[in-house]
Amino acid sequence: MTTAPTTTTAPLLSATDLHVTFPGRRGGAPARAVDGVDLDIAPGEIVALVGESGCGKTTLARTLLGLVTPTSGHVTFAGETLTHTSRALKAYRKRVQLVLQDPSGSLNPRHTVYDAVAEGLRIHGYAGDEREAVASALSRAGLRPPERFFLRYPHELSGGQRQRVVIAGALVLEPELLVADEPVASLDASVRGEILALLLSLRDELGLSALVVTHDLGLAWNIADRVAVMYLGRIVETGPVEAVLTAPRHPYTRALLSVLPESPGDPVILAGEPPDPARIPGGCRFHARCQVLASGEADAVADACRTRTLPILSGATDAQVACHWTQ
């Protein structure tokens, strides 16, 4: 668990009532991949976005990056609403950079490390000393001395070194926010800690903000200041990482935590698969799989769970939960 930095009141990035729908299959109902999300990220803050595969977290991250245009709602960065013109997106992507989970897929095998890191500079017409900028980025990413890596190719590097090259390619543009999608999922356990420590040091040294997308609550504990738990297109619990992960209130968060090796008690096995985002159930969207409702513990609010829709959680930093049982 990290200690949250002192941040300014105004968020660096804000999503407000964000919705993203995709056309249904064969003319069916549209899929509501992101179905009402408010999320703030403060300067110098690391937020972990967690949830099962298919919950919408990657679509939300791509929307925050400007790679997907929201159906409704908007994204604000540094006080300005993101527009999806080519010029606006090019300027935005210099300030907000993506780090993908698979460094092998992110790097062109025919490009040297130098060219991989310099690519962003060339796209954005960098007018300074390119060699110095590349060397500085590699050094910040932990590849020292940087010149030793200039002429190497991805296949000559370890998995951890390739991920550091990807991070250097993001850092070379001196962004204010990194969006890291499962940044250590493809790495050996021995290397994961090094990459997480690197991301934390970048926050401390450069004041970088980060959104870390992951299914791993253990990773969230180790790196995040704040966590947002997503289920079926909506954030269902959010707050400071210590508050959420030591005293989870939403049954879904409890189930995710129960499968961690260090978790006391038996793991909670959720019934079935997450519902189709084209057929989101009424009431609480988790009610069909909720272990608390199934056990009878939530009988007093069972009707509300099945019929009454919960409000969208705000993007603020305080602990919040969307659950009738915990109200």
Rank of each mutant, 00 (worst) to 15 (best):
T2C: 10
T2L: 13
T3V: 13
A4C: 00
A10K: 14
P11G: 04
P11C: 09
L13E: 01
L13G: 05
A15F: 09
L18F: 07
L18Y: 05
H19P: 00
P30K: 06
R32F: 02
A33R: 14
V34E: 11
D38F: 08
L39G: 00
A42K: 14
V47P: 07
A48V: 02
V50Y: 04
E52V: 01
T58K: 11
T63L: 03
L64R: 03
T85C: 08
T85K: 07
T85D: 14
A88D: 14
L89H: 09
Y92A: 11
Y92R: 13
Q97L: 12
L98D: 06
L98K: 04
Q101L: 12
P103W: 01
P103E: 10
N108W: 01
P109N: 08
E119Y: 09
E119A: 11
L121P: 02
G125M: 13
G128T: 11
G128K: 12
R131H: 08
A133I: 00
A133R: 15
A133P: 02
A133W: 00
V134K: 00
S136V: 12
A137C: 13
R148C: 03
F149L: 01
R152F: 09
P154E: 10
P154A: 09
H155C: 07
E156T: 04
V165M: 12
I167V: 15
A168E: 14
A170Q: 06
L177Y: 07
E182V: 07
P183C: 01
P183Y: 06
A185D: 05
S186R: 05
A189Q: 13
V191F: 11
G193Y: 02
G193W: 01
E194H: 09
L198N: 14
L199T: 09
R203F: 10
D204T: 10
L206D: 11
L206K: 03
L208Y: 07
D216M: 13
D216K: 07
L219V: 15
I223A: 05
D225L: 07
R226P: 04
M230W: 01
L232V: 02
G233L: 05
I235S: 03
E242W: 05
T246P: 15
Y252S: 09
Y252H: 08
T253W: 12
R254V: 05
A255L: 04
L256H: 08
S258D: 13
L260D: 11
G272L: 13
G272V: 10
A278W: 00
P281V: 06
C284K: 14
F286K: 04
C290M: 01
V301I: 15
S314T: 15
G315E: 08
V321M: 02
H324M: 00
W325H: 15
T326Y: 06
